[in-house]
Amino acid sequence: MQEVTLLLKRLGGGDKTALDEIIPLVYAELRRIAQGYLRRESPGNTLQPTALIHEAYLRMVRQSHPNYVSRAHFYGISARIMRQILVDNARQRHAKKRASEQTVELSETLEIAGQRPQEVMVLDEALNRLSAIDERKSNLVEMRFFGGMTAEEIAECACIPAHTVRRELRIAQAWLRKELSA
């Protein structure tokens, strides 16, 4: 899979268009894993979607690029992909919900969880605004929530002390919540 290697390089070099190309590849992997997860899922054993998407990404990268070592790069991209996937889906879902009265009937056992697609869309916009004032805080939030990373992991990736990460995250979270409730 030369393709993935190339895409990762372009992403690393700051080429944002590479993201659009890499996401479909993650999807394919994701679908396979997701099906497996759903099958194994049992009551009381909650699904961890964040972990799942990471797994998908990880698998894809490992398959194509076994010697891929830059952890910071990896996690950063992983969080970015996650955010992109979720926002895309939320948008699609939102659009569909508004567009069609004849929503697809789902069996009682399979109701779609999370009936508020706007929330993530609004969060995405708020993050963009935060990025405009303070890009680093926006990245930290992305890693924390979309990447599912701990403060320590973020500290390691971003090469800043963990307590700084915590401090910056705290105010960023408050700021985002304020923006979202406005």
Binding site: T50, N89, I112, A113, R116, P117, V120, L123, Q173
Partner: peptide, 21 residues
């Protein structure tokens, strides 16, 4: 704030996952 953001993201992730499937 932290819980709020976490929930928003993970709910969306669940939906996405099911839609993917």
């Amino acid at each position: 704030a932290e819980t709020f953001l976490q929930r928003a993201v993970s709910e969306e992730a669940s939906s996405t996952l099911q839609i993917l499937v």
